[in-house]
Design a protein around this nucleic acid. Structure first.
Lengths: 142, 142
DNA sequence: ATAAAAAAATAGAATAATTACATAAAAATT
DNA sequence: AATTTTTATGTAATTATTCTATTTTTTTAT
């Protein structure tokens, strides 16, 4: 049962196990790349009335504990996913903003090294692939 | 004189030549990766009172005309640069958010191809390198 | 150079996403 | 079961951005 492992994950990271946290984790796992607005609506569908602030707090603490990951593609609001600890990337549709995981060819970070890093000590190469998703290609064709 | 070539660029793109546009271009050229707030303050220092809306409009029309480029690294507000038409990337400091251009090893887009594009028709691989800039490394060392 | 047309700037309000903070409630610890 | 600590609530504030009607400026045509 997912909520059991979520509970364990929370305890392992010294985070208290609360209904809002479990609900948020469940939602992000089921709908990866959800935005805050969607998460809020889903949590309320599950638990009834929950404050906006509580959900923002949960999202922050999950990200701080590295249990969730925040992605912010240009032009979208913040998205969240539970897949952490591997180095993967994303493809975003220019038309409908649909977001897909793209596996990293290298795996570990930083998976890319520039010629000249301009003095930066780099730890990550975040890649956003931009294009048109399958569905929007099809719609465009017809 | 830079403003002369900016004027030409505007005309070539059928955009009217206005004081606000020239000022914004000048600022973005001088201070690449400026955010909106900085641009607004600088424009006003040059021209006196200018409406916020006018500056937002200029930034949009410059980007629409492909005379400027918008970048939105996670956690920063929107940044603007005049360097367009080449495929380059950025490094962002995790501490101070300083942003640097990073030349693309390939040059043309999309400079990277994933193993499995998940059905996307890709046209760009946007890369944000994350790390610590030289200045912040030095400060951390002491 | 001037008038007409078209585009841009102003002013003021509205919206969206997120954060702040004081108090109440719930979870973990003793 | 009582205490401590953390989380949730409710309300307000903030930040970045967009909307819209009106005025001004730029360009085009005379």
């Amino acid at each position: 049962m997912a909520s059991k492992s979520h509970e364990n994950l929370l305890r392992q990271h010294r985070l208290r196990v609360t209904a809002v946290r479990l609900a948020v984790m469940e939602i992000i796992e089921t709908f990866p790349h959800s935005d805050t607005d969607f998460i809020i609506r889903q949590v309320r569908e599950t638990l009834g009335s929950v404050s906006t602030q509580a959900i923002y707090n949960v999202l922050s603490s999950l990200c701080d504990a590295n249990l969730a990951r925040r992605i912010e593609p240009a032009g979208s609001s913040t998205l969240y996913e539970l897949r952490v600890g591997d180095n993967h990337h994303h493809a975003v549709c220019r038309v409908c903003k649909a977001t897909q995981d793209i596996d990293c060819l290298v795996g570990e970070r930083p998976c890319l090294h520039p010629n000249d890093a301009k003095g930066f000590l780099l730890d990550e190469a975040e890649i956003t692939f931009w294009g048109i998703c399958q569905k929007c290609q099809a719609e465009r064709a017809s």
